[in-house]
Design a protein around this nucleic acid. Structure first.
Lengths: 197, 197
DNA sequence: GTCTATAAGTAGATAGAC
DNA sequence: GTCTATCTACTTATAGAC
């Protein structure tokens, strides 16, 4: 396969993800996607049976890195040390592949909550991602603190979130923000006087 | 005016808000809104020049309680005590009028980020709401902690968020959750050894 | 694997009668 | 203030040639 004309299917997934994440699923038409790919709508229908199938394809590719993190987390004991490492790995993902994933989720709440099977898959992974930081035996307050620790990492490492923080008056570089967020997060996921560490 | 046939304009705003918050702006058609009102699309156009004007009308009505909270906050000194009271008032709003507002924002990120003037208004209020909890002179970590305190109140008091928490395994009634969230939030907005209190 | 052509439907919006 | 009827534009999706 020539490098230019390489795999229209894959290019379609990339372009569609970009547009869906930017302007939402409903607002993005197949015509628009096809134009960017420099093919016709009909060509698109050769690769995907429907717009929803295209959506499902995107979701499948996005879910992968999350599943890896969750799978790893399930082999670990639920100690404070584990939660700290979990946050470190999450921070890394948020700066990489998870970045597009989260934007996509945020911009497409309506479709994802729909009956669609793909949407359910997406939502379930998001819940799982949050659930792994929570220690079921801990006090309610400590469970909440852990979850907020995860949110801190999210705020500090996801590009749009950190841009919002700076627009809120945070005078810090993205790097400083990521470090500060991890500081705060560490404090939050530490439970009791070494009860579960 | 008869109570039944009362003000189609207001009823339209109510119905549209409900539908927009539930399934998103793009996915909701004027036909659907008109059907629920038991009038025709044309009648809708008598009251609103366009779909976007309808959106703007909704936003204006939603922005009001937020503006009140922000206005009050601007008369207050920026002490820890203020932030605690701010959170108490926010918690109240989240259980009342702000509830629909937040769902609406969450489900309509794409439209609200658009060029539309109404969308900008909405976003600016959301930022302002967050900004009032932040002490500009504080250390970056403490600023983040305050913001997370606000998020805790959000998680604990907004119905959909607290439903999500329970699906995450939090075994608590909505009331218990709200109390626990305020506990955690109090701890987070407290800055240093009474530096700004 | 990509094209042209087109079907079938719905969207937002308007004209003009009542 | 609400109606019927209609317009234009655009949507998802399909049929069939190359």
């Amino acid at each position: 396969m020539s490098p230019r004309q390489a795999d229209t299917r894959q290019r379609a997934l990339d372009v569609a993800l970009e547009l869906f994440a930017e302007q939402g699923y409903e607002k993005t038409s197949l015509r628009e996607i096809a134009e960017r790919l420099d093919v016709t709508k009909a060509a698109l229908y050769y690769h995907f049976a429907s717009k929803e199938a295209l959506l499902a394809g995107i979701i499948d590719s996005l879910v992968e890195p999350v599943d890896e993190l969750v799978a790893w987390s399930q082999t670990q004991p639920r100690t404070t040390e584990f939660r700290l490492e979990y946050l470190r790995r999450l921070a890394e993902l948020l700066q990489g592949p998870l970045s597009r994933w989260i934007s996509f989720v945020q911009q497409n709440q309506p479709v994802l909550r729909d009956h669609t099977e793909a949407g359910q898959k997406m939502q379930s992974r998001l819940l799982l991602l949050c659930a792994r930081i929570i220690e079921p035996e801990a006090a309610l307050q400590d469970q909440l603190r852990s979850l907020l620790g995860l949110l801190a990492v999210y705020l500090g490492n996801l590009a749009p979130a950190s841009a919002m923080l700076r627009s809120l008056g945070f005078e810090a570089t993205p790097e400083e923000l990521a470090v500060a967020a991890m500081d705060v997060a560490r404090e939050l996921v530490r439970i009791g006087p070494d009860q579960w560490s």
